[in-house]
Simulated scan of single mutants.
Amino acid sequence: MKRILLLCCLFIGLTAASYSQTTKKTTTDPVEKAKSLQKELKLTDDQTTKVAAVYKESSEKFEKIKVADQGNTDKMMKDIGPLRTSTINQIKAILTPAQAASYDKLIKENKGGKSNGWSDGWSATSES
């Protein structure tokens, strides 16, 4: 009986630990996203301000796309492609070559379907 109880406690503990490591908090605030990117890439305050402005502009354009596409996910995905590319290029223009290389790694690491927000102006995840 004690073994069963011990196994149950172990299972619950492992499940809780696993869940806490994968839970992410989403933010769409351009300033918060820029600050998060500042930590990742060691941006200067001036760079962070410029990145926040890029994220803000991108977020506004994304909202217009959402309204225009009226919930048509396929059309919206097609329409945000150029916006995402433009946002990436604008941010890379602000970065140093070393920061741009690190930024590319961030984008590639998270390209597998989960939006990390580094490359767009409307979604981001940060550790909770």
Rank of each mutant, 00 (worst) to 15 (best):
A98K: 03
K108S: 03
G117F: 05
K33F: 15
L106C: 11
E60V: 11
T27W: 02
L7D: 10
A101D: 13
R84C: 00
K66H: 05
N89S: 07
A34N: 12
A16M: 04
T49H: 08
T22M: 15
V54F: 07
D46Y: 07
E109F: 08
S59D: 11
G81V: 00
S59F: 12
K42C: 03
S115P: 12
A53P: 08
K92V: 11
A101P: 04
I91Q: 05
V51G: 09
T15M: 02
K105A: 07
D74C: 13
S119P: 08
I107A: 09
I88E: 07
Y103M: 06
P82M: 00
E32Y: 08
D120E: 14
K56P: 05
K50I: 05
L41N: 02
K42N: 10
L106P: 06
Y55I: 03
T96A: 02
P82C: 00
L7Y: 12
E40N: 14
E109M: 11
K105H: 06
A17S: 05
A68Q: 15
L95Y: 10
Y55W: 07
E40C: 13
S58V: 05
T125N: 12
F62N: 01
I12E: 10
S36E: 15
K75C: 14
K64V: 09
S36H: 15
A53M: 06
S102H: 06
E60S: 13
T22N: 15
G13C: 11
L83H: 02
D45L: 11
S58W: 10
K64L: 08
K35P: 09
K61Y: 08
D120N: 15
S123P: 00
V54M: 02
C9R: 11
A93W: 03
N72I: 04
M76W: 12
K33L: 15
E40K: 14
A68F: 12
D45C: 09
Q21V: 05
S58Q: 10
N116I: 11
K25E: 04
L6V: 08
I107W: 07
D74S: 15
T87E: 01
G113V: 01
P97F: 09
T49V: 08
G81Y: 00
L106T: 01
T87A: 04
Q47P: 04
E60C: 12
A101Q: 12
E127R: 00
S59P: 09
E57D: 14
K78H: 10
R3A: 11
